[in-house]
Design a protein around this nucleic acid. Structure first.
Lengths: 226, 226
DNA sequence: GTCTATAGTTCGATAGAC
DNA sequence: GTCTATCGAACTATAGAC
């Protein structure tokens, strides 16, 4: 059987290739994520990304045109998956109760991000580092990305904060959200500083340990504003 | 008078020059601060710094050897002044009372930074932006600077937190400090995002407005940990 | 201490074959 | 879709005159 045309044989073969590689598109995004996380946007080079993805540099330009659009594509891939999860978590909390716990809302704010793109261990993945850098930058490119990919979900969370904490004015709900994100970025950045300052007792590589301390801190802070 | 030697005349002239410029050392640091704040370490170029300082590029290398040491010199200048002020504020609080208000300690944490190197208005200066970037970066250079110039004063604040909030374990005091800094970096970064998310109601360019909301938030968070 | 001029490297991006 | 080869620009840093 299957002695007909090579064309048909090639089509059948397609679906049998193990790593389902129709192109190197995804591998380039993976490599970009690693290199941008390590060196930042300006510190990263297309050469290093190409090398880590094991492709020619020209292939990156073929798929993504230039460095800026590669960076945006990498942010878009992760953020759309993460923010879908965040929105769904939020909706479920309000389906189960008309007045969910503040603690659950704050945890829903961070958990999808620390679980995105991580391999096996308990720490946040490389994308979390990129996010921390983008969030704390006033540069035009970073703030345009924040606006495009994160402002819509931010407004949903601000609404949620006001609903479970009716004493919050709109302005204070925005401040509360910004401060919560600020605390969260301390976790995403994974600088190792807590370990240094505590002689090893505090590990910001352990996302679960951090969540256990961040959530009560933020909730206490928000309740102090209301 | 003063018809003797040119040498003597030149010496007398020195002290009369209005802007007291013995060298362009300080102007280079000022320009570096502006450019690094705008573009980050890797995004900044020695050419642009030289241009903004109105000196030849080679002069920067003469005074600071290379880009990394210029960056460190800029951090060293501001941080030493800021952290002297912070330590003194902290000491005064404990001189006036054996049990100062947590609110005063948290305010002392940030006020010297937002007042450093600013020109006239109510916002934090360019150095605050650089600090936000360094604090949230896991890169080796940034963490070495954090360790060298900021870890010692951080330990003093962690001690202070434990003294005024005796329920805090050492580990939780370290977490509390890290989270407080995380919230503070939201203010230092001056991204403009609060304005975007609030239709103009929240302005992170107004440092006094932010301090008024940040201090109660952080204090509420710390009290929730103890 | 400050300059001009430039060496030497690295980078983003493109041309063109397969 | 992927490659090799390379162009042209930008960068850090240095040499050497003043």
């Amino acid at each position: 059987m299957a002695t007909s045309t090579t064309t048909r044989s090639e089509e059948a073969q397609k679906d049998l290739d193990q790593p389902r590689r129709e192109s190197r598109f995804g591998s380039i995004l993976d490599a970009a994520e690693l290199v941008f996380a390590e060196s930042g946007y300006d510190g990263a080079s297309m050469r290093e990304i190409a090398s880590k993805a094991d492709v020619a540099q020209a292939l990156i330009h073929y798929h993504f045109k230039n460095k800026a659009q590669l960076f945006e594509a990498m942010v878009a891939r992760r953020s759309s998956s993460i923010n879908d999860d965040r929105a769904e978590l939020l909706d479920r909390l309000f389906e189960k109760s008309s007045h969910p716990d503040l603690e659950d809302i704050v945890e829903a704010l961070f958990r999808p991000t620390i679980e995105a793109g991580r391999t096996s261990t308990n720490n946040a993945g490389p994308y979390a580092r990129i996010l921390a850098s983008v969030a704390n930058s006033a540069g035009a490119r970073d703030q345009e990305l924040a606006k495009k990919y994160y402002d819509p979900i931010a407004l949903k969370y601000i609404d949620a904060l006001q609903r479970v904490q009716p004493g919050l004015s709109r302005a204070d709900a925005v401040w509360a959200y910004m401060f919560a994100i600020g605390v969260g970025m301390t976790m995403m950045a994974q600088t190792g500083r807590p370990k240094r300052l505590s002689d090893g007792a505090c590990d910001d590589g352990d996302a679960e340990e951090m969540l256990g301390r961040i959530v009560p801190f933020i909730c206490g802070g928000i309740r102090a504003l209301a």
